[in-house]
Structure formats: C-alpha cells, structure tokens
Nucleic acid binder design. Structure first.
Length: 634
RNA sequence: GCCGAAGUAGCUCAGCUGGUCAGAGCACCGCUCUUGUAAAGCGGGGGUCAAGGGUUCGAAUCCCUUCUUCGGCUCCA
C-alpha cells in the first residue's frame, strides 16, 4: 500500500501499516513525537491501520496549538485523572471523560462526596503519575467480552456505554487503568508538560436530570507550561471584560438579594437600554410593526388555553387571588397577543398583522441558573407576533431574517444559527411540525444562512431559528429567535375571513431579534469591553472646566450639546484636571472636552477615545458627532 | 432545583490554629490648593464581619439552618 505525504510525495508501506509505521518510515524523531494522524483529513489514532492511498498528515508534539492535537493530549490527561481517582478513591465508578474546548472533564460516581481538598490530592497524584511516566496500549475486543469485563469490574456506566456502542469496542490501558474508549490517545504521557484540575461540579449521567448526578472534575492540559500560563492569563483578561464586573465599574446596573435575578438599571445602564429601545421602535415602525401593550398578569384560565399551564408552569410566578382564582405573571407575551388578535373579526385585508411589545416578563428561573444580565428572572424581550396566512409565511420569514441581519450587522456580532426542531413535549401533530420545520429550513436556505440542527430543542408550540453567541468567558447564549407556530392560534381559535368569505387558519411568527434586551446588553458590554460606540455610550461627551472660573463656560457648552440631542455631562468636581481626565478614561467616555482660558476665546480641546486630542469649534464638534451617530439613528 | 466553593466598610481585599481582630487601599465627606490632558496634600465619617440558631468564660474565626453570589449540570431569551 501507499500513502501521500503533505508535499505530494508517495510513501510505500507494508499492507496494514499504521500511522505510527508511516512516521517511523519517515524518521525516528517524527515517530517519537507523533500524536495523531489525519488520513484524508479524518483524525485517527496513530496505532490504527491507514487506508490505502490516503493523503496523510501527522500531527506531533510540536503542533502545540492545533485543536485536534490538544484534544488528544487532553483526552489522555483525562485518563490519567481517572487512574488517579481510582487509586485514591477505591469503589469509585467511572463514567465518561472527553476532551472539551480548553480542557477536559471526567465524570465519576464517588462512594462518598469529595471537595476541593480531595481535588488537590488528586491533582498531586496525577503529577506523580506524570513523573513516573505512562504509556497507552490499545486493544480491540468484542462487545460481549467488554460487557463481561466491565460487569466484573463493577462499572455499570461502562456496561451501559458498551451496550449502546456501535462497531468494535476499543480499550486503552495505561498504568493499572483500562478504559472503554474510542481514542485517539498519546503514545506516552511525556508530551503532557502542564496539567491542572480546574473545578468540581455535579453533572447528570448522559445530561439527563432524571438520571443519577455524577461528580464531574474539570481540568486542562498543555504541551508546555508556557501555554498553560498563557491560557490562565487569557482567562484573567476575559474576566476583566465580564459584564457583571463592568456593570459595577461603569455604574450600569446592580442586583439585590430582595429580588434575585432582576436587574436594577442605574441611569447609565438605562441610557444604553433606551438607545436599544429607540433603535427597536424606529426599525419596527419602518418595517410595518405596530406597537401594542397588553396586561402583565392573567387568570390561570388563559395559561391553560395557551398550554403554558401544562408545559411552563414551573417557570411561572403564580399569584393566588382567592379560593377560586389564581393569576400568573406573564413569562411570554404570546397569549396576550392572541387575545388581542382575537378581539376582533379579522379580514385577509389586514394581514399580515405585526404586533410588537417589549414588555417586562418574569420567569422563575432555577436559582442556580441565574447569571448576571445573561440569565435573569425579569426579561424584556423585543418581542413581536406576526399573524399571517399560510401563503404569507415565506415573505414574513424573509422580512425577519433581513431585519435580523441588519441589527446584528450594526453591532458587528456574528451569531451562529440553530434550527431547533420538535421537542418531546410538543403540542400538535407531526404533520404540522413537518410543515413548520420545512418552512424554517427553506427560509434559512433562501438567505444562505448556515445552521446546525438542535434536535428536540424547539418550543412546545413550534420550531425555532435560534441565534447563539459566546460571551467573554466562552459560554454560549441564545439571543434572537424566530418561531413559526400553528398551535397557539388554533388553541385560541384564531381565524381570518378570506376573500372567499370563509374562515381560514392563522399562523403566528414569534420573533425576538435581540432576544432579551438584558441578555443582549450583557453580551455587547463584553463585546465592546465597556467602550460603547458613541450612539450607545451612556455619557457621550464630558466637559471638564480647567478651573472654577471656567465652570459657567463649560456649562453653556454642555447645555448646547444636550440641546443638540447628545448625552453630555459636566465634571466640575474640585479635582485636578489630570484626575478628572483619568476618571473619564476609566469610564471609557468617547469624547472629553477640556474647557479653560484658551477655549474661552478659541476652539475647544477635544479628546476622543482612542484617538488623542485635537481642537475644533463647537459647531464642528456637533456636526462630527452627528455624523458618527447617523448610521444608528437611521 | 442538583454538585462544589464563597459571603469582613460603596468597591478590592487582609484578619479566620477562638482571647486589643474590627484593619488597608480606592471611593465618600471636610479643609487647603485654583488646577492644562491618566491619580495634589492633610484630616474625617463609615462595618451588629450575609441572616438566624448553637458550642464556649469568650465567636468574624468552630457547628447547624436559611439567603445570596461564584464555577458547573439541568433548563432557557
């Protein structure tokens, strides 16, 4: 057989040769450093036979930043962790231990709970293993053999994995630990130059909260200590961009234990909030949406009709009124909008009807799920419900996707699209879901939006196109969502009169493009590192009078800027100019104007964030600011 | 909700093998200075050490419960 090397030369090998054999044929050093082989771009363990004629790429310990090479390193590190845990905690049952972005984890069922102190001991044990050195052996056995073996070892999770595994079963052994594992793995532990356990957490077996909760140990590993240090350094820098930290530093919002998960918006945070609201109102108006306002609390009967009582009650705040009546604070706007639509006989001439409302919603999120602005109990969705006929669905979905692209383009953020399909607790028949899912797929294709499929991730009333973005700490959050719903209108008996003088079914598109204003603001705080563009900045211009006698002059300028529609502010504290400039810098204020003796007579000294200082007249400054702000003011 | 960790002045933190342990810096207030592009000087106020209960002669420090926060899991905009 032969393989093709990256430089296009061909290498003759005996039949059945492995990646390691190929590396040996090229050179002993390469063989020693080999970590992973890619045959025609597909990763495989270096111990496995190569396909004949494959284009070969061998990743080595020098590919210190290659995600695939790092995954192999970390996967092997996870096995060292499991070996150490089994030695230190006899009776522990092992589950799974894959590499993940930036590290790895391994799930265990411990006979007795462990804590951070145990974690330190486990890490020390792994370091000892690394000192001794380990080598991995790979073997393949039948599923029956594997099952018998893990049953004998008292490893129920491994037995379950064997039972659901496809194809041959492979085992990897290092030290006294043998793991059911697909691989690939390192040859030896020598390349693991840095190893660190990072945290301890509970995790449900197979990600299902009905299953047993296991103990998950997170860690990371690198090809060098320097890389680990750099990783930790990056984490530190990311923490500086954390919106919870910047929210306090920039005086945007805070939380209080008297209402967990509900932000208190300070004046500066509210300025950002309102800038987004202004944008939302203007664009909605331009795109044919009508603003509406509906109640915050409704009788339980409404929630029974909508299906929320059955599907969403656990997340709702209930208000007992008397023995017979219970109200609930709305977690979504849709039922209210259904009532609004149904309050009149609707003609086909009215459709599509686009009702927009950015009302406060309350969801009783699990206490452990709350997270700054990105996971709150008080949510403001930039919500809208589009009521349309079957024929209008495509056009309305198009409108939503164009709108969505415009909005995200303004912020320069590029979310990933997900098609979320029918969940287990869905309402309605499969045929209806076939139709609504099909419509969303066609729309994504028309707009050439690539997406991944989230099986079963849809809402109980319809499939969704969801947009996801990662925050400063690499956590993924859902922002916008576009949902096509045939269930809710039929549960509310909504119809419209057609040209044929008959009633026709109504379809509803639920759409929130920012998603929630709270979460969106959390994300953009991190995206901009707190340095908002001019149109969003809480304070756009700050005036600094040089000394007491320039206060009146500075006040006048500040008033004129406010008159021109800008958020201008005066800092006339009795601090040195240097101190006040420093504070303005730390607050990331886009434009700072120093006003003193010279400016009373001539041009203003303008300090622009990131660009240094220059001089211009007040009129020039206003014109310039208007020019900068224009795109977002439409 | 579950697993692990934490909660000391507005913020960041020290003190935590129980006994001058209630402290520091920044912030705040007052006075002096009247400031020219990233921190002027001096002085001062401020905390029932998250809340409640317990152990002890004595608790910020040890134990229990609750609340909140942080890292995950589940769930979700």
């Amino acid at each position: 057989m032969k393989v093709i090397l990256p430089d296009a030369t061909e290498l003759e090998l005996p039949d059945g040769a492995s990646g390691l054999d190929a590396a040996r044929a090229i050179g002993p050093k390469l063989a020693e450093q080999a970590v992973l082989v890619k045959a025609d771009g597909v990763s495989q363990d270096i111990r496995l036979p190569l396909p004949n004629g494959a284009k070969l790429q061998i990743l080595t310990t020098r590919d210190t930043h290659d995600p695939d090479a790092l995954a192999v390193l970390r996967h092997s590190a996870a096995h060292l962790l499991a070996e150490a845990v089994r030695r230190l905690h006899p009776g522990v049952k092992v589950a799974i231990g894959p590499p993940i972005d930036n590290g790895f984890y391994y799930d265990f069922e411990f006979p007795t709970p462990i804590n951070d102190t145990d974690l330190e001991a486990i890490e020390a044990e792994v370091q000892r293993e690394l000192g001794e050195g380990r080598a991995w052996e790979r073997e393949e056995i039948s599923a029956d053999e594997a099952r018998a073996r893990f049953e004998a070892e008292g490893e129920p999770y491994k037995v379950e994995l064997v039972e659901t595994a496809e194809g041959a079963i492979s085992l990897y052994t290092q030290g006294d630990f043998t793991d059911l594992c697909r691989g690939p793995h390192l040859q030896t532990s020598a390349p693991i130059k840095a190893f660190k356990l990072t945290s301890l957490a509970g995790a449900y077996w197979r990600g299902d909260s009905n299953n047993a909760q296991l103990t998950r140990i997170y860690g990371t590993a690198f090809f060098s200590q320097k890389d680990l240090d750099a990783h930790l350094e990056r984490l530190d820098q990311a923490r500086a961009r954390d919106h919870r930290r910047l929210g306090a530093e920039l005086d945007l919002f805070h939380f209080d234990e008297h209402s967990p998960g509900s932000p208190f918006w300070h004046p500066k945070g509210m300025a950002v909030f309102n800038a987004l609201e202004d944008l939302r109102r203007r664009e909605n108006g331009r795109r044919g949406y009508s603003e509406v306002r509906t109640p915050l609390i409704y009788d339980k009967a409404l929630w029974v009709t909508s299906g929320h009582w059955e599907k969403f009650r656990e997340n709702m705040f209930l208000i007992p009124i008397d023995d017979e009546h219970t109200y609930a604070v709305k977690p979504m706007n849709c039922p209210g909008h259904m009532l609004l639509f149904g309050s009149q006989l609707r003609s086909y001439r009215e459709l599509p009807l686009r009702f927009a409302e950015a009302a406060p919603l309350h969801r009783n999120e699990l206490a452990g799920a709350l997270h700054g602005l990105t996971r709150v109990r008080y949510v403001t969705q930039d919500d809208a419900h589009i009521f349309c006929s079957r024929e209008q669905i495509d056009g309305e979905l198009d409108g939503c996707l164009v709108y969505l692209r415009y909005l995200y383009g303004l912020f320069g953020i590029e979310p990933r699209a997900e098609l979320s399909t029918r969940p287990e607790n869905k309402l309605g028949a499969d045929e209806e879901w076939d139709f609504t899912e099909g419509k969303l797929i066609e729309a994504l294709d028309r707009h050439e939006i690539s997406y991944f499929v989230g099986e079963g991730e849809g809402s109980f009333y319809g499939p969704k196109i969801d947009l996801h973005i990662t925050d400063a700490l690499d956590r993924s959050w859902q922002l916008g969502t576009i949902q096509l719903d045939a269930q809710m209108p039929s549960r509310f008996g909504l119809t419209f009169m057609g040209r044929d003088n008959r009633e026709h079914p109504v379809f509803v598109i639920h759409r929130a493009l920012f998603g929630s204003l709270e979460r969106f603001i959390g994300i953009i705080i991190e995206h901009y590192g707190g340095a908002f563009p001019l149109w969003l900045a809480p304070v756009q211009v700050r005036l600094l009078p040089v000394s007491e006698q320039h206060r009146n002059g500075a006040r006048e300028i500040s008033a004129k800027l406010r008159e021109a529609g800008f958020r201008a502010e005066l800092d006339e504290r009795d601090e040195t100019l240097g101190k006040r400039i420093r504070d303005s810098e730390l607050e990331k204020i886009p434009v700072v104007v120093v006003f003193g003796e010279r400016e009373s007579e001539a041009a203003l000294a303008v300090r622009t964030r990131g660009e240094g200082q220059s001089t211009r007249s007040l009129d020039e400054l206003v014109a310039e600011l208007e020019h900068v702000v224009a795109p977002s003011r439409g």
